[in-house]
Design a protein around this nucleic acid. Structure first.
Lengths: 123, 123
DNA sequence: CAGGATCCTATCCGATACTG
DNA sequence: CAGTATCGGATAGGATCCTG
């Protein structure tokens, strides 16, 4: 978090990427690729969902982690949150444009891996 | 890891994705999106790299985590490993076709986030 | 150079209990 | 329904030392 030294020797042709070390994207990438973040984002790609729908959709997630993950993603501007002040309360989550932009690659990633792991069950 | 119950009620139109719960892709996705996995894969996209080059490229990674991450990615078939039996030994890593297939979305993901976080420094 | 083995700590995360 | 607060076990991961 503190090291800001980039090994960029101006003039030397950089043989490998150096820009992904302490750039601000690091934090967001960590959130997006967190244990549950990726599944939340993928789940919300199809349609907006309420809290319990997300919980049921993402098998194995605890309420705590879902809430925590959602909070982070909302803070990062990837997910919006809409509260309906009814009784009982009703909270819906959905992807912002940024979230949709990020969800695409995530989906590709997941599909690519799934396709590779079960090439026969493609039907 | 153990829960194999899918909430797939045949006949009910599934309102949200249910397939990403205990499918085999889960493990690989976890490895790919692990704290260091994503950076290893992105780094190797430009060119094959040796151990110490990867370590220098991915600022902040420890040798332990680099070795561990590489081992996992090799096991998953995303990265190949080539040992040159010289003195001192020389080990090179690179992306398999599967790795390249996965690295694309990862790169898009990273680029999208970077672009969004610094829209002015696009030049 | 490219790791393996060990130790130790920070954090992740699930379980539980409680709130509006 | 949609969370928050707290506790405690599991694990990720850094530091250090050692090897071929």
């Amino acid at each position: 978090m503190t090291g800001s030294v980039q090994r960029r020797q101006a003039g030397t042709s950089e043989r490998y990427d150096v820009f992904h070390t302490d750039c601000p994207a690091r934090g967001v990438v960590d959130h997006v690729t967190s244990r549950w973040g990726i599944w939340v984002l993928i789940s919300l790609r199809s349609n907006d969902l309420r809290f319990y729908e997300l919980r049921d959709s993402i098998h194995g997630i605890s309420e705590k982690m879902l809430a925590q993950t959602l909070r982070t993603l909302v803070q990062d501007g990837l997910v919006w949150r809409e509260v309906e002040p009814t009784t009982p309360p009703q909270v819906t989550y959905g992807l912002s444009e940024f979230g949709r932009e990020v969800g695409g690659p995530l989906r590709e990633l997941f599909d690519g891996i799934t396709r590779r792991l079960s090439p026969r069950s493609a039907g």
